[in-house]
Nucleic acid binder design. Structure first.
Lengths: 189, 189
DNA sequence: CCGCTCATGTAACAGGTTACATGATTTA
DNA sequence: TAAATCATGTAACCTGTTACATGAGCGG
């Protein structure tokens, strides 16, 4: 039951609508959590019922009305308890890695295509996270910001996301090169 | 339904018992997939029923009997189809990152303790993956091995796991330093 | 006028986790 | 003698995914 805590953490910076939360989770909140809109709407409803978040209706004219949510004191207490309790080890689950594991036994054409696409996505994400970091720290240096900034949580998690995507990009590039070279060597044989 | 493909990929290198598969997945098969024993025994049973793997009984004396499984031709075909189909984007889901995201609003004592433990685990895993890589490539250089080795899939995925754990370690160390320094600064205030 | 963005859900199903269950052997 | 390893499962429950459903405005 950690999705709820991810939602609470995402709401710490201010009021968001279900839609905005969904967008944040679709990108992956700094790449550390992903969830679908349906799950989030459901979770927000549940959180509100339990009093961990509170929503207020905002009437709009050219857009459908929306509900902006914020974390309540009870919500903060819940987050506090969550942080104090033991975390499960992180896990990565990646279809692409399964495919690469089997690379010696299957055709690699489609695999290389997918690795290429993944590399593109990773590239885009590094740019995105880079921008986000710059925006968060403003005109301060990273050192300065991390020492004296008043909201460093998102910055730190974004750093992790950036490193992850950079490694992703490097690994995809390397793996593509290896698979391609082997294919050419085989076709020469 | 990708667990089954992860299992098939894990069985490509030779016969394994359910218990051995479970151990491989408990560490995380090169850190790209994690699953619990119960799930794996169930999956193996299903895979056998569908003819994607075949098992043979091995009678042991000082140990309970076991069943060793290997991938069948139908299993290979299934893997081939899986590789050709589109993969879902990878996602990371990490409780610890949720906690760090909320770090400005909660007590950081327990958090730092967990980050420290995570760093230790990451350190241990880098060592483990380093060993595994050395074992896989034998006395060849990495370049040599990746060009001419006949089973490079596990090597490539292990490289990804190693990079992941290295980044993990760096990030934990950095985050701990930041949180500790801020706490000391606050207590001086 | 087609597709994207904003805005919110329900229902059925597939997948994963937790708890329970057993029992012999080897190692510290 | 207590704990870890080998060895395999079942059942109940919780979580997450997929498909379906609706509808108005805005930009090209």
């Amino acid at each position: 039951m950690a999705l709820r805590h991810a939602v609470l953490a995402a709401l710490l910076d201010g009021e968001l609508s279900g839609y905005q939360v969904a967008k944040a989770f679709d990108i992956g909140v700094a790449n550390f959590w992903y969830a679908q809109p349906q799950q989030l709407y459901a979770e927000l409803t549940r959180l509100e019922k339990e009093g961990l978040v509170a929503g207020r209706e905002v009437v709009q004219e050219s857009r459908p009305n929306k509900r902006l949510f914020h974390v309540t004191d009870a919500g903060l207490a819940e987050l506090e308890a969550f942080t104090a309790a033991a975390a499960k080890p992180a896990f990565v689950r990646d279809d692409l890695l399964v495919k690469v594991q089997a690379a010696d036994h299957v055709d690699t054409h489609a695999l290389v295509a997918e690795l290429t696409e993944r590399a593109t996505v990773a590239q885009a994400k590094t740019a995105l996270f880079g921008d986000l970091l710059r925006r968060l720290r403003g005109d301060r240096t990273e050192e300065e910001f991390l020492r004296h900034g008043d909201r460093i949580g998102p910055y730190l998690t974004c750093l992790r996301g950036l490193a992850f995507e950079r490694e992703n990009l490097d690994w995809c590039t390397r793996t593509i090169a290896v698979l391609e070279e082997r294919r050419q060597a085989r076709s020469r044989h």
